[in-house]
Nucleic acid binder design. Structure first.
Length: 357
DNA sequence: TAGGCCATCTGGTCCT
DNA sequence: AGGACCAGATGGCCTA
């Protein structure tokens, strides 16, 4: 499957330069030819020099013209050190150099394929984390961070058996993320920054799940109204908001529109069996040292009034600079470029079932 | 221009 | 022996 990554036109020149991944049958021949060209550049020169050491390790025993090199580096390189043991180095004949080069080419091809698979898996992960933008694709590290936060948030929900308030949910998702990613997530969830700030956070940085104010159950408009992801999954299209193409991260997470408790801010589902939350997940929020913060990634910056409640339509105001101005953050992509992925995550079916029991 | 992100190459190590 | 995996190096692209 070609992932979005591979279909990204900006990446095509580099990717297509090494076309081995796109047609496995012709892979070897193509790679040979193209690596021949590549080797005219820096990589090739390094390869020709560096590959010798690997061939030494590999041991070329089928070489017709093989000759044992008589301590080729023995005179001055060795110095006082004892002589090396093991097989003696062999002279790099042209045939051996060529075989070594071919091994290196094959290894490069495998490595490219491996990295492409890794990127493909990462792309799949991007599709199941809470938000996604065509124009502002999450970086690899941010994808992993968001996924970790997402798992953590879901685990907390299952563990506590309660629906957290939206603010806590978003705070958890954005923990340790960079400012642009925070903006993106907030944009996906269409939160007003004023909703994003709590008294708790003003005082001590906040803690996940510590706030107990009622959930704000107003609908958020899905960015892709016509998207099938916003359509009812199974017989839940009776809700007028659904009928009008509305869905929200929170809604989709908790099955709000389809549940009789949809308008109840205080709905509490039954307690779930305790879910073991890995010790890697500290419940301490920003104040605590996070393993993800070692590189000095931003914590969230909020604007607006502390603890203020949602009033008007969502107005995205994130960003350290936008905190004062209260204008739309330029990091937030347009709505039509964003959509939520909750609907597609299998975990949501289970969660919905759980909350509807 | 610096910094972030990425793809690729490369050599080393470990495993089968 | 060969493949998988890993980390370092390098260069390109993009953005503030």
């Amino acid at each position: 499957m070609l992932t979005r990554l591979f279909s990204d036109p900006s990446l095509l020149p580099d990717v297509q330069k090494y076309s081995g991944w796109e047609d496995s049958e012709e892979e070897d021949s193509k790679i040979k030819d193209e690596d021949q060209d590549t080797q005219d550049g820096t990589a090739g020169s390094e390869l020709r020099d560096g590959s010798q050491t690997q061939s030494e390790h590999a041991g070329e025993d089928d070489d017709d013209d093989e000759e044992v090199e008589e301590e080729e580096d023995g005179e001055d390189a060795e110095g006082d050190r004892p002589k090396k043991r093991g097989p003696k180095k062999r002279k790099m004949t042209p045939a051996r150099v060529e075989r070594s080069r071919m091994r290196r080419v094959k290894a490069n091809t495998r490595e490219r394929t491996r990295m492409h698979d890794l990127n493909s898996a990462l792309d799949n992960l991007r599709k199941v984390v809470p938000c996604y933008s065509k124009t502002q694709k999450l970086s690899k590290i941010e994808t992993l961070r968001l996924a970790k936060n997402y798992i953590w948030a879901l685990s907390e929900i299952l563990r506590s058996g309660k629906r957290p308030d939206l603010v806590s949910y978003v705070q958890t998702l954005c923990k340790g993320l960079s400012q642009p990613t925070t903006n993106l997530v907030a944009g996906c969830l269409q939160l007003n920054s004023r909703n994003f700030l709590t008294d708790q956070q003003c005082q001590d940085g906040g803690r996940y799940g510590s706030s107990s104010f009622p959930m704000h159950s107003y609908p958020y408009q899905c960015a892709r109204l016509s998207s099938p992801h916003c359509q009812p999954v199974s017989g839940s299209n009776s809700h007028p908001l659904r009928a009008h193409g509305y869905c929200s991260a929170y809604d989709s997470l908790y099955g709000g529109s389809g549940s009789p408790e949809y308008n109840s801010p205080e709905y509490e589902g039954p307690l779930s069996p305790p879910l073991c939350v890995s010790g890697n997940f500290s419940l301490k929020h920003q104040g605590a040292a996070s393993p993800d913060n070692e590189k000095g990634y931003y914590s969230m910056h909020y604007s607006g009034l502390p603890g203020s409640r949602p009033t008007g339509p969502p107005n995205l105001v994130f960003g350290s600079s936008g905190a004062r101005s209260g204008i739309h953050s330029e990091n937030v992509p347009p709505y039509h470029d964003m959509h939520l992925h909750h609907e597609r995550a299998p975990a949501y079916d289970e969660l919905n079932a759980f909350f509807h029991n």
